[in-house]
């Protein structure tokens, strides 16, 4: 990056550090920070959507839909995250390829499972074997988003299910007395009111989601923890221009600060949101706000 980085052995102090922290490898570390933030930005709303779908299904009057919603929430909440991430993603990927295989090359003579191998025809590969690396990475990233959304969606579904039931029954009855249909009651009264009950649970989930991002590397996405471990490990002079002993403590220390700051900022935002949602609600918090204002 800087012009004088050609011979780092001759540098010392800040100049050395400046060159060291701008190597291609460090750029990958900074880039992976973006990956993690992007993952959170996409996963949180998607998981909320999944959760909303799950909660609505679990409350449905149609029995199969209700069973589906309850089963989804129960199964995903019951399976350990690691097992889910290791098993489910490979299964999901193979499932996609299996379907494409049957659609795209029905005349294929061999079976898909050959001993230990999972072999589909070249056209059915996802992504295609000759796609550039960024396509493979994007595909891996999207699989990760989907898996995170399914896992956290189940937890969010449980929270929202509880929140929907916490909305005072009297309010819904009043709405019904005004002649609103079931759909109108849900849209106009239930959903706007449930957030105040859901937010403590959801903010908890958000915190857990932030901390769960290192699971990304299980899915082959290189995240900040992977790069910190890789960069922090001892480096011998034969293989790098910047030899150093084991520096993982510093890298993980920086990660610690990053995660703490991130969760702190989240807490502040959640508190503000809570204050906003409590306004005028028939809860202890809403009552306290009213008294303070009066």
């Amino acid at each position: 990056m800087f012009g004088n980085c050609a011979d780092p052995g001759a540098l010392d102090g800040l100049a050395w550090l400046g060159c060291y922290l701008t190597t291609g490898k460090h750029m990958s570390l900074y880039g992976s920070l973006g990956t993690v933030l992007l993952l959170l930005a996409i996963t949180a709303p998607t998981a909320l959507l999944f959760g909303f779908g799950g909660a609505t299904a679990a409350r449905s009057h149609v029995a199969p839909l209700r069973w589906f919603g309850k089963t989804y929430i129960a199964i995903v909440r019951g399976v350990p995250d690691i097992a889910f991430f290791l098993f489910f993603v490979i299964a999901l990927d193979q499932g996609f390829e299996y379907i494409r295989h049957h659609v795209l090359c029905p005349e294929w003579p061999d079976t898909v499972r050959q001993g230990n191998d999972f072999v589909v025809c070249a056209q059915a590969k996802l992504p295609l074997g000759n796609s550039p690396q960024w396509v493979h990475e994007t595909y891996g990233f999207l699989l990760a988003v989907l898996t995170f959304a399914i896992v956290f969606g189940a937890f969010a579904g449980n929270v929202l299910f509880g929140a929907m039931r916490a909305v005072p029954r009297a309010q819904l009855e009043t709405a019904e007395a005004y002649g609103m249909t079931r759909g109108q009651v849900t849209r106009r009264v239930l959903i706007p009111q449930m957030w105040v009950y859901a937010l403590p649970g959801l903010s908890n989930l958000w915190m857990v989601l932030i901390k769960a991002t290192p699971l990304l590397f299980l899915l082959g996405v290189e995240d900040i923890v992977y790069w910190s471990r890789e960069l922090g490990g001892a480096k011998q002079p034969q293989f790098t221009d910047y030899p150093h002993p084991d520096w993982r403590m510093w890298y993980f220390g920086a990660l610690l600060v990053f995660y703490l700051c991130f969760t702190k900022v989240s807490e502040i935002v959640m508190d503000r949101l809570m204050a906003r949602l409590t306004l005028g609600q028939a809860t202890a918090g809403g009552e306290a706000q009213r008294r303070a204002g009066a």
Binding site: T23, E230, G233, Q236, Q238, F239, T240
Partner: peptide, 16 residues
């Protein structure tokens, strides 16, 4: 990518 001299990531982050 973590087993020098067989395979490792160089300063540019590429396999070497």
């Amino acid at each position: 990518g973590a087993y020098p001299p067989y395979n490792f990531l160089n300063d540019a982050g590429e396999v070497d």
